[in-house]
């Protein structure tokens, strides 16, 4: 579904990704494991079109999206739930969710998707008319995920969904991600909580200093000595 072929990308003169290649297949849950600054967020931002790779290609369902603008990539069905929530602070929760369904492919199904998302996030229902900025961090993260779901994406990308949240909220976030995965969604996830993420994933890539150093099934990565030592602390 998604094929990344040897991309270099970075900010200005600073190159962060060096020849990164990876793929995500239909209904697969793939995770990128790596230390802070390894280039995980940069990889997701490049796929989303917020950054343009200097070399290499990105294909989505066979179409070359390397040079496509971020909003056109959303139209194709790739949605990124960004790090740090990035809600619209002075909009109500309902308005935030409606913005999630801005994509043409989602606009006509707004009401239907809203019902589905409300089932997944019953606690958001009570908050619909509140301003997003008045919610707690955990609630904001739930809204950010719900907003991503509103786009009815073919590929859903998570960037650090549990970052900065209390342990009990982290558990809730993983519960929700588990439900999304169980529904057969195609997911690419970057997450500091490597153990839980590998448990939920089918496959994983290990990214170090902007290059993929290891790729295997999630099960195998959980048993891999290097992964255990460097990322699981075992």
């Amino acid at each position: 579904m998604l094929n990344i072929e040897g991309i270099d990308a970075g900010y200005g003169a600073t190159t962060i990704l060096n020849g990164v290649s990876l793929e995500v297949n239909q209904s697969e849950v793939v995770t990128i494991v790596g230390a802070n600054g390894a280039g995980k967020t940069t990889t997701l931002r490049t796929i989303a079109g917020l950054l343009k790779p200097t070399t290499g290609r990105i294909l989505f369902e066979g179409e070359d999206i390397t040079k496509m603008s971020a909003h056109d990539i959303v139209e194709l069905g790739i949605t990124l739930i960004p790090e740090g929530r990035q809600l619209f602070p002075d909009m109500t929760v309902r308005e935030n969710l409606l913005m999630g369904a801005y994509r043409r492919g989602a606009r006509d199904h707004q009401a239907e998707t809203m019902d589905h998302v409300m089932e997944l996030f019953p606690r958001i229902r009570e908050r619909l008319d509140q301003h997003a900025s008045s919610l707690s961090g955990g609630e904001q993260q739930m809204v950010a995920i719900a907003r991503g779901m509103m786009a009815r994406p073919k590929l859903l990308m998570f960037d650090e969904p549990s970052l900065g949240l209390a342990p009990i909220i982290v558990a809730q976030v993983f519960e929700v991600i588990g439900k999304i995965v169980a529904s057969g969604a195609t997911v690419l996830i970057v997450e500091q909580n490597v153990f839980n993420t590998l448990k939920a994933a089918d496959r994983g890539y290990v990214l170090e200093n902007g290059s993929i150093v290891l790729s295997d099934t999630a099960e195998a990565l959980l048993k891999d000595d290097h992964v255990r030592q460097a990322y699981l602390g075992i």
Binding site: A48, G49, L50, S69, A70, H71, V74, E75, T79, L80, P82, Q86, L87, F88, P89, D90, M91, E95, L98, M99, G100, Y102, R103, R104, R107, R147, A151
Partner: peptide, 24 residues
């Protein structure tokens, strides 16, 4: 209106608006 909300979204968070598929 949908377009009006998109305008407010861009005003409040330009990067997030792009991620919603809005042509900023």
């Amino acid at each position: 209106t949908q377009t009006g909300r998109a305008i407010r979204a861009v005003a409040q968070n330009r990067a997030a608006a792009q991620l919603m598929g809005i042509n900023v």
